[in-house]
């Protein structure tokens, strides 16, 4: 373990406890989802020459990495949104890594290549998050479908990204970020984030494999997924 102040040490312990609580609640969440019956399609395969349940499920699961697979991410407008999605979620991964690695091996985050990558990802995600806030606030469609949870989750993540960028800057002594309080604040916010996630929309990533596999399996069994397109006009 590295040498830390008592205040930072407390923040780190709370942070790890939050992680443990999140893991327990997530387990309960998955158990809750699995408590519902899995509906089985009794119909015979629809178009076996084209697809099947396994193929559909597999393609669907990795849909996230195939922007060409959906009309909503294939168009120019949709592809832009897809790129912002990638940046945003890579930023989340970087932010979580930052929180944990900073408590275990902060020196890793001071390696120039690592530091630059982390900072770029988190700042990129911060900018996308700002865009998303504006999008959610300004577009009537987004306002209509948004709940307080949607707004809060997004704002919390935006602050978290901002604080994460400052934390990474603090670790490498950039931007004039010298106070340890930034790192402590970041760890407390991450702890809250971990505790809040299972009860919010952010838990969608927990459900992603289930929902994607279910729809892929259902449509794959019928033979309509992966989508087959005619030649373009």
């Amino acid at each position: 373990m590295h040498d830390v102040s008592p205040a930072l040490h407390t923040a780190e312990i709370i942070h790890w406890i939050a992680l443990a609580v999140m893991a327990v609640v997530y387990s309960l969440r998955i158990r809750w989802l699995l408590s519902f019956n899995l509906a089985r399609d009794r119909s015979v395969p629809g178009n076996p020459a084209q697809s099947n349940a396994k193929k559909g499920a597999r393609h669907s699961l990795f849909n996230v990495a195939m922007p060409w697979s959906m009309e909503s991410t294939r168009s120019r407008k949709g592809f832009g949104f897809y790129l912002s999605f990638v940046v945003f979620h890579l930023g989340v991964v970087a932010g979580i890594a930052l929180a944990f690695v900073s408590t275990i091996a902060p020196d890793v985050l001071r390696i120039p290549a690592v530091a630059t990558t982390m900072l770029a990802l988190i700042v990129g995600a911060f900018l996308v998050a700002l865009y998303r806030i504006a999008r959610r606030l300004l577009r009537p469609l987004m306002r209509l479908i948004s709940t307080p949870d949607d707004y809060f989750s997004l704002i919390m993540l935006t602050v978290w990204f901002g604080l994460g960028a400052c934390t990474q800057a603090h670790l490498i002594g950039a931007w004039g970020m010298t106070s340890e309080a930034i790192l402590i604040a970041y760890l407390y916010l991450t702890s809250f984030f971990l505790l809040y996630v299972p009860f919010s929309k952010i838990s969608h990533y927990l459900y992603y494999p289930f929902t994607r596999i279910y729809i892929g399996r259902a449509l794959g069994h019928r033979g309509s997924y992966p989508v087959v397109r005619g030649e373009e006009a």
Partner: peptide, 18 residues
């Protein structure tokens, strides 16, 4: 399980719109 997945999975991103 499939229905519950669809009920809890929506993140209100608006991608279905167009």
């Amino acid at each position: 399980r499939q229905v519950v997945g669809s009920l809890v999975g929506c993140v209100h991103c608006g991608m279905c719109n167009d």
